[in-house]
Simulated scan of single mutants.
Amino acid sequence: MRARGLSDEHVLIDLGAGYTELDCVLRSSYGFRGRYVPADVWLDGTFDLLTWEPPRPFHWYAALEVIEHQGHPRSLVERLKEWAVEGFVLTTPNKNVVDVFAQDPTHLSALDEKNLQGWRLETSLHNFYGHYQDGICAVWTRRMKGGHDSQR
């Protein structure tokens, strides 16, 4: 996100923030001094991505290890495109390397780079779960080449 324009003046909403590890990494490894806002069901028990909408536009969103828990993951991607002033990043297991459904009984979708690239996201492969290229990171920004996604 830093490489794509996340600045210290931005607000980052972390959907499915868990124990807020992303905040720790951004601050300790990348010097991020912006506002970090966690959103997760364990925080207050009411967070539901099927119905949740941000109260106002925010610069950046992160959805790390979240999209595979959605029955209609493209819906979340399209909503993130609407909400994000600057962009978003998401990660998910790579279905071409790992059995996504065997990893966690709450996984509802299995994706690969082709799925995410088809939704106009830039992707890269990473080693997240102990196997070579078993995880996918996808990024979208309003400034990405391709024209119409850069309109707001």
Rank of each mutant, 00 (worst) to 15 (best):
R56C: 01
F101A: 05
H72G: 01
V97F: 04
Q117G: 07
L6I: 05
E53R: 14
Y129F: 15
F32C: 04
L90A: 01
E65T: 10
N115I: 01
H69L: 09
G16M: 04
F32P: 00
Q133P: 00
H131Y: 11
P73T: 09
W60F: 12
R56P: 00
V25Q: 06
K114S: 14
I136V: 12
G118F: 11
Q70R: 14
F128K: 08
D99K: 08
R27Y: 07
E53Y: 02
D134E: 10
W140K: 01
P57C: 04
N115S: 14
V139I: 15
R2M: 13
L49K: 02
T46F: 09
V97H: 02
G45A: 13
D8K: 12
W52T: 13
E9W: 03
S150N: 11
V100P: 02
L50V: 08
V89A: 10
E86G: 07
R143C: 07
L125A: 12
L121H: 03
E68W: 04
E82M: 05
A17D: 05
G45P: 05
Y30E: 14
S29Q: 14
G16V: 00
G135T: 10
S28C: 05
A3P: 04
C24S: 13
I67C: 03
V89H: 03
L121F: 05
Q103H: 14
I13W: 00
V77C: 09
V97S: 02
D8Q: 09
D14P: 04
D44K: 09
L12K: 01
F88P: 01
L76P: 01
E53S: 15
R74P: 01
L22I: 08
V66W: 03
V100Q: 06
R33V: 01
W119A: 13
E122S: 12
L50P: 00
T51N: 09
N115H: 15
L121D: 04
E68S: 06
L43S: 03
D44Y: 09
L64Y: 00
L26G: 02
L6F: 07
H69F: 08
